[in-house]
């Protein structure tokens, strides 16, 4: 009997310790961001394709996310993405692409930022789109009509920077979500005909001319980092 109690005691201690470590990893508040030297060391060891020549700036997106634009050894512009994860600052990814969409919360499109680091120092404009296609459906006596959503927002792109999608769009997403069926349940998906909305940019030939052909990018590490989709506004309307 005494031996049993001893074993149960040990099991309890182990369970509490594991729970404590998990809680600590997930809920520890971010420490101050890394020093430049620490950043450079981690970036250089991430891939042999890139080597930091100069860090241009350190921009905070929110408490848990940082964007660090830098110059690559060959003079090309590059970007790095940092996230507070499991009680440490983690390098999410690196790219020499000039513009990306970073969605901080995987489940919430309204947490999207547009981030950029361009080869040109001259300002450029970009038209962001919030778009959902028009749709209709009839099933028996039940008729559904889903209006088109199309909003644009012009943003000015300086050499490098970040911009959050407009507040108004977040409000709109919250309203649009009210008519979405419960589809995130893994067991089954309810009947859902609602087309999804998306954030894109208006197609602009110059954007593609300035993109290097041998850009470095691995999309593997984080699905919340994506290329910006380009739409031709004339073809939508």
């Amino acid at each position: 009997m005494g031996k049993n109690k001893f074993i149960i005691g040990i099991v309890v201690v182990i369970v509490v310790a594991i729970a404590g470590i998990l809680l600590w990893l997930n809920f520890k508040q971010p420490t101050s961001f890394l020093s430049e030297a620490a950043m450079i060391e981690e970036m250089n060891s991430y891939t042999s394709s890139l080597n930091v020549k100069e860090i241009q700036d350190v921009l905070q997106l929110d408490e848990h996310h940082y964007f660090v634009p830098f110059v690559n050894y060959d003079g090309t512009k590059a970007m790095s993405f940092w996230k507070w994860d499991k009680a440490k600052w983690k390098l999410v990814n690196l790219t020499t692409h000039q513009k990306m969409r970073w969605q901080l919360d995987e489940k919430d499109l309204s947490s999207s930022f547009i981030v950029w680091n361009r080869s040109s120092a001259e300002d450029a404009t970009m038209t962001l789109l919030f778009y959902r296609e028009r749709n209709f459906l009839s099933s028996g006596d039940n008729h559904f009509f889903t209006p088109q959503v199309l909003l644009t927002e012009e943003i000015t792109l300086s050499e490098y920077g970040i911009t959050k999608v407009p507040e108004q769009w977040s409000k709109l997403m919250a309203e649009l979500d009210k008519s979405a069926g419960v589809t995130n349940n893994s067991m089954f998906s309810f009947f859902n005909y609602n087309p999804n909305y998306l954030i894109a940019a208006e197609y602009n030939l110059e954007d593609f001319e300035t993109n290097g052909t041998e850009s470095y990018w691995t999309g593997k590490a984080d699905t919340t980092l994506e290329f910006i989709m380009y739409y031709d506004l004339d073809r939508i309307q």
């Binding site: 028009r134 009509f145 709109l172």
Partner: peptide
């Protein structure tokens, strides 16, 4: 009144009208 799926065809097709029948949302 009935929901009319013709609204869809009103807004697409060759003589595309660049308007949306329901251009607002009540939040």
């Amino acid at each position: 009144q009935p929901v009319n799926t013709d609204w869809y065809y009103e807004s697409v097709g060759d003589d595309r009208v660049e308007v949306e029948r329901f251009p607002y949302i009540l939040a």
